[in-house]
Design a protein around this nucleic acid. Structure first.
Lengths: 119, 119
DNA sequence: ATGTCGCGCTCTTTGTATGGCATGGGAAGG
DNA sequence: CCTTCCCATGCCATACAAAGAGCGCGACAT
C-alpha cells in the first residue's frame, strides 16, 4: 500500500511545534540557529524551517546546557563540539530518570491519600 | 626551633597578589565576592582582604568554571553548591596534566632541535 | 469554480534589558 | 606613594524579544 506524501512530510516539525514542546519562544530557536551550526534544520521552498527528530535532539542538548546547567552560549558550543554524542546519551538518561521521578511522586501521593483514609 | 610570626602571617595573600596570579583585575575578584558567598575572605582590621590558600582554591574553581568552561555566574554558583569538593579534585588533576603537557612540549622542542642538528 | 477576507503562523530585521565586569573618586592604611 | 578600601557610575557585549511584512489555507460569498 503506497503511503501518501503528507505522511512523509509529517516527519518534520514546525518551529512553533518545537517551541511549544520546550516552552520557549520561536525567536529563541532562530537565535540559537545563528549561534550553533549544529542547529540548522532543512527549510521548505518557502523558507520555513523543517525540524527532524534528530534536530530536536540537538536542540534538547543545547537547551540542557544553556537553560538547565547554566552554560554561556560559547561554553555550550565548545561542549557540544567536544562531547556532542556522549552528551545526548547522558541527557537521555536524565530524562528517563525525570520521568521515573514524576511517576514515583504521583505514586507517593496516591499512597499518602490511602494512608490518610485509613489512618 | 620556633618559627617567626611573619612566617605564619604570610599564609595570607592580598587581592593584588591573587589578581596577578590569575591575571585578572582586582575589581573582578571583588565582584565575584558579591556573587559567590563561598568567596568571602577574612579581612584585616582596616578591611583589607586576606586570602588563604583555601580561598584561592575556591577562586580557582570559580575561575575554571566561568572563564574556562564557559558557565554563567548563576550556573557556576549552582555547580559550586552541588559539587564543590569533587570539583576541586578534578581541577587539581587538570592542572597536573597541564603541567605535564607543558613539560612534554618543551621536551619535544629539545628533541626536535637535536633531530635537526643531526639530520 | 473563484475571488477575497481574515487568521495564524512564519519570516527577517531591528530594538533592548540585563549581565558582567571596568573605571573613577575620595579616603585610609602599610 | 602605592595599594587597598567602598561606592557609584559607565559601558560593551550577550541573549534574547518585538516589530513589521509575507505566505497559506479555510470560510464564505459570488
Amino acid at each position: 500500500m503506497p503511503y501518501k506524501e503528507r505522511d512523509i512530510e509529517k516527519q518534520y516539525f514546525t518551529i512553533g511545534e518545537v517551541a511549544a514542546q520546550f516552552n520557549v519562544a520561536p525567536s529563541l530557536i532562530r537565535f540559537w540557529e545563528t549561534e550553533f551550526e549544529e542547529l540548522r534544520p532543512r527549510k521548505s521552498k518557502k523558507g520555513n524551517r523543517l525540524y527532524t527528530p534528530q534536530d530536536i535532539d540537538i536542540f534538547r542538548t543545547i537547551y540542557h546546557l544553556v537553560k538547565e546547567r547554566g552554560y554561556t552560549i560559547p561554553g555550550a558550543r565548545d561542549m557540544l563540539k567536544q562531547k556532542g554524542p556522549q552528551l545526548k546519551e547522558k541527557i537521555d538518561v536524565i530524562q528517563s530518570l525525570e520521568k521515573i521521578r514524576k511517576f514515583m511522586v504521583t505514586m507517593k501521593k496516591e499512597l499518602d491519600a490511602i494512608g490518610k483514609a485509613q489512618g
